[in-house]
Design a protein around this nucleic acid. Structure first.
Length: 567
DNA sequence: GCCGTTTTCGGCCCGACTGTTTTCAGTCG
């Protein structure tokens, strides 16, 4: 049992308890424990198995949850969870994920109509049955219908961090390499494709279906096995391919479809045929290439194309002219410019974040806690912001092997003004401007709002510029080209938010912004030292947006970066 | 349910919006 799954069970139990109308503080304890465990560096199961260790030493885990953890690890559930699942169906949890539907409404619907599936709920809304209940009306019915449709679009897809954990675990276990949309760095994946090759390839398929976290084997033959993995049921396809076809298979299963079609057409014109086994001459079926991707692309007269670019969006033409951009690499990053501490809603102190960043080899970070508009996150007001800036100046007086920039993730108010006064903002080194509220305003108003926020001389970068939350919330709408154009003109940068829930901007918008002359930062929005490792997802996204090292400002060394910020 | 304690009980982030009301419950962040 992995931490992520344990955390999910605790959080879900908290959700069910909320539907049950139980004490809010008790629910918070479950959620808090879930969040601590999710971010915990060691496996909870290992700690439980070590007689010398106590899980209650972990902050947020007391006697009660320690008992639950023991149960979860030994039998896959715990009493409280079972009890709640007796009362409410697991489908109730699905309903909670609909935007606009909360625990109280779910409970009312269950008690009145025994609504247990989204289909039931949808029908009731269409028949306007919700209006029979107190405080429910037509608007709510509409909202729920919209929420269901949005939810359906995202169901069955997985965030990159989840897929990534599975890919790493199985990759190591099987000696397998990921292909598919995961390899291309898509922000969400529907399934995970893995390739194994060599003498033990067929044996690996058998080994795969015996993995303790594999269940529901969908099929198993000599070249392919397919099964559901982990609690969430991520579908994993493992393919065994001979060494001489490995490159061809990797290419074929990485896709995407359009890219592959274009390559096969190209091969055809050259008197060749391309499939997952190799590149062959049509005339006498002799093998031209297949063992590596590089030799296939080369035989087609192309430079090897990074997987993140394989969408048939002009990359083949660029590869032909040998004009592919040199994409940014994870190792190019010298700092992380968006993270939170306990001052607002983060889990660690400034010093702990700095220490973790230093261990990753960074030269600098910016601490960017929330501003006061985010009251629930205990955002900073003017006085605290100014005090924080002084604290950072003090920190930097000594050489600590890492430089901190005093930053703030400052809310952009509805009218486009900044949440804190210019005087206070001027004390800080680095202001990230972000939208956290009023996301459903009309497109022109949102455009004006973002244009106006850049009039503040303190604003250096637009944080998570479209506000999307993957599988959960659509981006808010505005005239992107106008805003990006203005950002380029004013020297305001745009963020690639590396949090796997966001990955904002998207690849398409990155390319558009880049074309308009925008510069970027890639930052994790970490709320825990562990989240600093999410940088790799941001880099993937940047690569999908064709960004180079030069496009991304936090690839600069500390002196150059500081100079660029001051300008 | 956790934490901290002047150690077994009291405190634990809450403000703003929406849609429903006619004073507020529910949701979101």
């Amino acid at each position: 049992m992995e931490n992520l799954e344990i955390a999910r069970m605790l959080a879900e139990t908290g959700d069910l308890m909320e539907i049950g109308g139980e004490d809010g503080f008790r629910i918070r304890s479950y959620r808090n424990a879930a969040s601590v465990i999710e971010g915990y560096p060691e496996r909870i199961a290992d700690i439980l198995n070590d007689p010398a260790r106590k899980v209650t030493d972990i902050q947020g885990i007391g006697k009660g949850i320690a008992e639950a953890l023991k149960e979860i690890v030994t039998r896959g559930s715990f009493a409280r969870r079972d009890e709640m699942l007796e009362k409410y169906p697991p489908t109730a949890l699905e309903m909670l994920r609909i935007q606009g539907l909360g625990p109280k409404t779910v409970r009312t619907l269950w008690e009145h109509f025994r609504v247990s599936t989204l289909e039931d709920l949808e029908r009731l809304c269409r028949e306007h049955k919700l209006q029979d209940l107190p405080r429910m009306g037509a608007k709510l019915e509409d909202k729920i219908l919209k929420g269901i449709s949005q939810y359906r679009q995202s169901a069955g897809r997985f965030l990159l961090n989840y897929a990534s954990a599975a890919a790493e675990e199985l990759g190591e276990y099987l000696g397998a390499t990921p292909a598919g949309s995961f390899r291309r760095g898509r922000e969400t994946v529907g399934d995970l494709d893995l390739l194994v090759t060599g003498e033990n390839a067929e044996a690996a398929l058998a080994k795969f279906v015996q993995h303790p976290r594999v269940h529901d084997v969908l099929g198993q033959g000599t070249t392919k096995a397919s099964a559901l993995f982990g609690l969430e049921g991520l579908q994993v396809d493992v393919r065994a391919v001979p060494a001489e076809s490995y490159g061809a298979a990797l290419q074929y299963f990485t896709g995407n479809k359009e890219h592959n079609v274009a390559l096969r057409q190209r091969a055809q014109k050259m008197g060749l045929t391309l499939n997952e086994y190799g590149l062959f001459k049509v005339s006498d079926e002799t093998r031209v290439a297949g063992a590596t991707e590089e030799e296939i692309y080369e035989a087609l007269g192309l430079a090897w194309i990074p997987p993140e670019m394989r969408e048939n969006q002009g990359e083949i033409e660029a590869a032909e002219k040998r004009q592919l951009p040199e994409l940014i690499e994870l190792e190019d990053l010298r700092g992380d410019l968006h993270m939170h501490t306990r001052e607002s809603d983060g889990r660690a102190t400034m010093e702990e974040m700095a220490e973790a960043a230093k261990a990753m080899g960074y030269e600098y970070i910016a601490i960017t806690d929330h501003s006061k508009a985010l009251a629930m996150a205990n955002g900073l007001d003017e006085a605290r912001a100014v005090q924080f800036a002084a604290q950072v100046r003090e920190f930097n007086k000594e050489d600590r092997g890492i430089r901190i920039f005093s930053g703030l993730e400052c809310d952009i108010l509805r009218d486009g003004r900044m949440d804190l006064s210019e005087d206070a903002l001027a004390e800080l080194d680095w202001v990230v401007a972000s939208v956290h509220g009023y996301m459903n305003i009309e497109t022109p108003e949102m455009t004006d709002r973002l244009l106006r926020c850049m009039e503040s001389p303190s604003v250096k970068v637009l944080g998570h510029p479209t506000g999307r939350v993957l599988l959960h919330r659509e981006a808010y709408t505005y005239d992107f080209d106008r805003v990006a154009g203005e950002a380029a003109k004013r020297g305001v940068w745009m963020e690639v938010n590396a949090s796997p829930e966001r990955l904002d901007l998207s690849a398409n918008l990155l390319r558009r912004a880049k074309a308009l002359g925008v510069k970027f930062t890639i930052s994790t929005d970490a709320h825990h030292p562990k989240h600093l490792a999410n940088m790799k997802y941001g880099v993937k996204m940047a690569r999908r947006g064709w960004l180079t090292k030069d496009d991304v400002m936090n690839t600069r060394g500390v002196a150059k970066f500081a100079a660029a910020v001051r300008k």
